[in-house]
């Protein structure tokens, strides 16, 4: 969309709306990865990520 003809206030609003959905999606995906690598309880995941968990100072064991 060409937003250059809109007043500044509306341009900022369009810009924000355009940003929010992808940003929130990125936050959810990032949170999912961190919980999986650093916090998931199943012992297979724990053992695979063991040294990384310790070195990144996640609570372990």
């Amino acid at each position: 969309m060409n937003t250059k003809t809109l007043p500044l206030k509306d341009r900022i609003a369009v810009d924000a709306a355009h940003r929010v959905a992808p940003a929130v999606l990125a936050l959810l995906f990032g949170g999912f990865l961190i919980l999986g690598v650093g916090f998931a309880q199943p012992s297979t995941l724990h053992n695979a990520a063991h040294d990384g968990r310790h070195a990144l100072a996640f609570p372990c064991h």
């Binding site: 990125a26 936050l27 995906f29 990032g30 949170g31 063991h50 990384g52 990144l56």
Partner: peptide
């Protein structure tokens, strides 16, 4: 496996960081 978990954690942190930067505009 440490390489895998380090890279996945790092990509996770990168998504959080980029997401917050994008939100801040």
């Amino acid at each position: 496996y440490t390489l895998l978990s380090d890279v996945l954690a790092s990509i996770g942190f990168a998504f959080l960081l980029t997401g917050v930067i994008a939100l801040s505009g």
